[in-house]
Simulated assay, not measured.
Amino acid sequence: MENNKNKILVTGGAGYIGSHTCIALHEAGYEVVIYDNLSNSSQEAINRVSSLIGKPIEFIEGDIRDADSLRQVFAAQPFFGVIHFAGLKAVGESVTEPLMYYDNNVSGTITLLKIMAEYEVKNFVFSSSATVYGDPEILPINEDSQRSCTNPYGQSKLTVEHILEDLAVSDNHWNLITLRYFNPVGAHPSGQIGEDPNDIPNNLMPYISQVAVGKLDQLSIFGNDYPTVDGTGVRDFIHVTDLAAGHVAALNYLESQTPAVGFLPINLGTGKGTSVLELLRAFSAVSGQDIPFQFAARRAGDIASCYASADKAKELLGWQASLSITDMCQDSWRWQSMNPNGYNLA
């Protein structure tokens, strides 16, 4: 079966970053098939993506650890490549449930790659993370920085990166781009899709927005004694729609590469650090809401500062982040105020 250069399988496409990327792919002329087990996402997100792009999006409910299900997907239609988002992502949960994280994130990816090899689909964009850099020795962090991890979630991402490196050495027909995200925030400007965490949010922006909308009482800021501009942690926040555009740029790059690129790691970040307090003030200004907070002790495994060198993405992919902290806060607030209960319509 000859590969269709426009057809992309998006695993985990119903999730936060996946859903935004599906829209960006559609706008760039790609045909998208979502494969997701809905364990940490919602059918409603897929419905809204379909509404935003003005046509039904093909959705197959399935698990990346299910080889037979994946085989049926690849046997039924030709794909140019796979963007692989399907993975568990809560750092704290990974510490208490490490086997679950290694089973899903590592074993699941191995199963997916095996089936891709069977069907000669060898273009792969992997959703990695800046957590693979651990506590950075030098800022900004570039792709050659030393990798180490402080939790099983990060370790699962790094393990997959090692697998991809070995795969590229074993077979020079693979195109394996690993995109190392920094801190995705924001939402689609329509307010129709956004980050919808189960239970208490693990990430800062949805926590701030749920305090702003009155769903949570106050924000706890972990650590105010870091060696940073105001004592709070500094991170490289990137708008999710900028991030989505980075995946399209990666696919476009792969289409033009002969011979194959092998294993290629690329940071997606803004190159600028913003502290927790700076983000909090920006969100308060945009939303007009007072956001109560308290300082708490540092969390184990947290680091003081983390921001990217995004030069490689600009040089190779022609991509750079364009949206500001204000944009990120405005879009997060629009999503949260329009959808106080996320995708739960009850």
Rank of each mutant, 00 (worst) to 15 (best):
204 L>S: 06
287 S>M: 01
288 G>D: 09
315 E>N: 13
253 Y>R: 01
344 N>Y: 02
204 L>P: 04
69 S>K: 09
152 P>I: 03
37 N>A: 08
239 H>S: 05
54 G>C: 09
307 Y>L: 05
289 Q>M: 09
337 S>C: 09
12 G>M: 05
62 G>W: 09
245 A>S: 15
170 S>A: 15
132 V>Q: 04
57 I>A: 01
125 V>A: 02
56 P>E: 11
176 L>K: 06
62 G>L: 07
37 N>E: 14
154 G>T: 02
329 C>M: 06
115 I>L: 07
36 D>L: 10
55 K>P: 00
233 G>W: 01
129 S>N: 09
89 K>Q: 12
326 T>I: 14
59 F>E: 00
102 Y>E: 14
83 I>G: 00
234 V>E: 06
281 R>W: 08
1 M>F: 10
17 I>R: 01
258 T>L: 07
44 E>K: 02
200 I>D: 10
62 G>M: 06
334 R>C: 08
185 V>R: 00
198 N>W: 07
194 G>Q: 03
100 M>V: 15
109 T>W: 13
309 S>K: 12
254 L>I: 05
227 P>S: 04
179 L>W: 05
203 N>W: 10
213 V>M: 13
263 F>E: 01
221 I>C: 12
303 I>C: 06
142 N>G: 13
167 L>W: 13
301 G>T: 11
146 Q>S: 10
137 E>H: 04
100 M>G: 07
345 L>Q: 10
286 V>C: 05
200 I>G: 03
138 I>K: 15
77 Q>R: 14
68 D>W: 05
331 D>I: 01
339 N>A: 13
70 L>I: 07
102 Y>R: 03
154 G>L: 02
51 S>A: 13
127 S>Q: 12
134 G>V: 05
276 V>A: 09
243 L>N: 03
166 D>N: 13
159 T>P: 04
169 V>W: 03
328 M>H: 04
293 F>C: 06
19 S>T: 01
225 D>A: 13
308 A>C: 08
174 W>V: 01
268 L>S: 03
104 N>R: 06
311 D>G: 13
70 L>K: 01
95 V>M: 11
93 E>G: 02
322 S>E: 15
173 H>M: 02
268 L>E: 03
326 T>H: 10
73 V>P: 01
195 E>V: 07
325 I>H: 00
5 K>F: 10
148 S>V: 05
332 S>V: 10
2 E>S: 10
114 K>H: 14
292 P>R: 09
107 S>D: 13
151 N>G: 03
308 A>L: 06
51 S>Q: 10
175 N>E: 01
336 Q>S: 15
153 Y>A: 05
191 G>L: 05
276 V>T: 15
194 G>I: 02
182 F>A: 08
240 V>F: 00
190 S>I: 11
233 G>R: 12
73 V>H: 05
301 G>E: 10
331 D>M: 04
271 G>K: 11
190 S>A: 12
89 K>H: 09
124 F>G: 00
145 S>I: 11
5 K>Q: 14
96 T>S: 14
188 H>P: 06
329 C>A: 15
250 A>E: 00
331 D>A: 01
279 L>V: 07
139 L>I: 13
319 W>N: 06
2 E>Q: 11
180 R>E: 13
178 T>K: 00
143 E>M: 13
192 Q>D: 11
202 N>F: 14
70 L>A: 02
228 T>P: 06
178 T>H: 01
164 L>R: 08
71 R>K: 12
241 T>I: 07
122 K>E: 00
